[in-house]
Amino acid sequence: MRREVRLSGFGGQGIMLAAVILGRAAVMYDGKYAVQTQVYGPEARGGASMAAVVIDDAPILYPKVTSPDLYVIMSQEGFEKYGSGARPDAMLLLDRGLVHSRPACRYLEVPATDDARSVLKKVIVANIVMLGALVTATGVVSREAIEKAVLDQVPKGTEDLNLRALRQGYALGEGAIHEAA
């Protein structure tokens, strides 16, 4: 089955890295096909950031997301640009502290940045927390796969921190899913 994931936030949050990890998990460890793409502007930090991952059991023909069924939104601007138009049966994970609007589709509030700051003491891993929540809430890739992919991609010496972030996300992914308004 083709699944389209759109991730959005602001530059510097690691949106791109989260997309790369997700695609890697699907391809390298779940034996699926995946294509990761992005839209980026001239800013390396700040500014809107969007990445996308298409995951499928069969080879992927069209590489771009057209109508995502999964969203990971980590900024208000990202929500307005991408999340607000989500189709009714889509599932949207939003960073509770950073996104103030609520979508017209099913959604899960994830205090990713808050927990990264207060529990993990490193706000930088909020993107990994979101990935953990995404995996639990949607099963888009397996836990084993995402853990291996995270370890492949994160800097040496931060493996433990990132695994803890992932597990924090798993727990948050168990939270109550709000049905579409």
């Binding site: 790369v20 695609g23 391809v27 096909y33 995946a34 294509v35 990761q36 793409t37 992005q38 992927i60 590489p63 771009k64």
Partner: peptide, 9 residues
Amino acid sequence: EHIGHMRER
């Protein structure tokens, strides 16, 4: 750019 920056298997 699509193909250059795309990641896939």
